[in-house]
């Protein structure tokens, strides 16, 4: 059995790593829950944003924060363009899964053509910075990621609950035809949400560039666990997505500390299956 300090550090690292799951899950959860579009290209957009941040940082020496300010609007436009296609061809839930899978594969190939399949790492002095609290180390980048994810999740949650647009979106998600008959312009709102989702992917991408090693195939690395997180956090619930991300991150990390790293992937899907067995209506 590992020591208390090791477990505590594992817990902290896990929660912080879960912040990334939550941040990636945020946009996916919104489009799946509120637009009934399962957007697999979300992961590819995040990695495209990561590579752009990397390119801006290494070739043009643009600070990551400025890179984010440039990459976010670009991804937002891509998100809107992608939604135009969904809208134009009246794409449904299942078709969206297949189409966005294709988008993601195309983006993966495009990334590989430009940046090659080599592993790339964007080294900044932030990556080694950490704060020491008692016996534990808290890496600064991961902490910043969690804070950004927290602000976005809270903000989005409040926006969905307190604003006219947010409530109209939830109404339209439940019954688009009825909402339309009460004056809710679902199409416009759907564009807004798709743009937001892509912008969130870009923000996640900036952190991916700073925290992870980039390779085109890594696009798929988080797919399984983030899918589980989206469902555990309940579709369309941004706070749920973040909390589920942190829960899964912590559980994985503890499982790795107690058993072995290979156990980590088992955790997220065990939790998912347990929840679906407990409440089949969860989805």
């Amino acid at each position: 059995m590992p020591s208390g300090t090791l477990l505590g550090q594992a817990l902290i690292s896990g929660v912080l790593a879960g912040g990334m799951y939550g941040l990636l899950a945020l946009g996916l959860s919104l489009s799946w829950g509120l637009l009934r579009l399962v957007n697999l290209s979300h992961f590819a957009l995040a990695f495209l944003a990561a590579y752009l941040t990397y390119e801006l940082g290494t070739t043009y020496h643009v600070a990551p924060w400025w890179a984010a300010a440039m990459v976010v609007p670009v991804m937002l436009m891509i998100g809107l363009a992608q939604h135009w296609l969904f809208d134009r061809f009246k794409v449904n839930e299942l078709a969206s899964l297949l189409i966005t899978f294709s988008f993601a594969v195309i983006l993966e190939v495009a990334i590989q053509l430009y940046w090659t399949a080599d592993y790339r790492r964007f080294e900044t002095h932030y990556s080694t910075m950490s704060i020491k609290v008692g016996a534990f180390y808290i890496p600064v980048l991961e902490l910043a990621l969690c804070m950004v994810a927290g602000v976005l999740a809270w903000g989005t949650w409040l926006w969905l609950r307190k604003t006219y647009v947010g409530k109209a979106l939830r109404a339209a998600a439940e019954d688009a035809d009825i909402a339309a008959a009460y004056g809710v312009d679902h199409k416009k709102l759907a564009y807004l949400l798709s743009g937001m989702g892509a912008a969130y992917a870009a923000i996640a991408g900036t952190f991916i560039a700073l925290i992870a090693t980039l390779a085109p195939a890594q696009i798929w690395a988080w797919l399984g666990v983030v899918f589980a997180v989206v469902i555990i956090g309940r579709l369309g619930n941004p706070l749920g997505a973040l909390l589920a991300g942190m829960l899964i991150g912590a559980s994985e990390s503890i499982a790795m500390a107690i058993f072995a790293p290979a156990w980590a992937p088992v955790v997220s899907f065990s939790v998912l299956i347990a929840i679906l067995l407990w409440d089949p209506e969860w989805l």
Binding site: Y164, K167, R170, A171, E174, I178, A179, Y182, V184
Partner: peptide, 15 residues
């Protein structure tokens, strides 16, 4: 056809 997942007040304010 009320919005079942929205609260009573939200059903009104959403539209």
């Amino acid at each position: 056809n009320i919005f079942r997942s929205l609260s009573v007040e939200e059903n009104l304010t959403a539209v």
